[in-house]
Amino acid sequence: MSSEEALLGVENLTKRFGAVCPANGVNYKLRENQVAGIIGPNGAGKTTFFNLVTGLCIPDSGNVFFQGGDITRLSPQKRVQLGIRRTFQLASVFDNLCVVDNIRVAYYQKQRAGRPSLGGMFLTELVGVHSETIDELTEGMGFANVAHTEAGGLSLGNKRKLELAMAIIAEPKVLLLDEPFAGLSEMEISQIVEMLKNRCAGKMSILIIEHKITWLKDLVDRLSVLVNGELVADGTYQEALESPQARKSYWKLIEE
């Protein structure tokens, strides 16, 4: 399959930080509506991979493709407008806005076809930004009671859920989740898994970085293992976990 057929693809992506090489000639293609997982040890380059795809980080060499076009040099903002959204390993929301306002700001961009103009923003009342999806998500994430408190006061779990809500409300084409389950209770994780299955699967491609591997089992239809900036295994959940290379370079670390 060539990059032109994949929704999102990277070719020979390389990035160095001094002696560290968190992306060493990575080739990866994500198909439409695919739900894929990426696992790997700490410092393997998983987050760096997301940074390269979202434009927070420019590769030393190699290219990033989206819908057949080369987006390697595009600004982060342009990539978002094309339909790539992500969450961060450290949940990133607007601490000084209340929970609904966070969601409203995220939704408004979608409402304005991805490109909110200054004039439009100026003339639109914030409380006027509402929709059934906002209500549904606020309800579904269990935010009904905290809707009007500042996001800075939320628990880590709630921040993560809020960030997720802000990402999926825009119905992106590709959703990149960086350790969405970290720091959450079992209950909260299964809530998020359900949310991803019901609301996102089949409508968008999802790429999930996780250390809590077993939670990916029912969720992903593909799993890759990244070690030292290189993809050492790629296949179904079972295949990836049983691949000899992955066992050698990743499981060894865990089993020891």
Binding site: R86, F94, L97, R104, G114, M121, E125, L126
Partner: peptide, 21 residues
């Protein structure tokens, strides 16, 4: 206005606002 919220968002977390397009 939405613009006011965007200003506060810049103050709170500019990168995030950028990554919302």
């Amino acid at each position: 206005s939405v613009y006011g919220a965007a200003c506060l968002a810049v103050k709170g977390n500019e990168t995030k606002l950028q990554l919302l397009g």
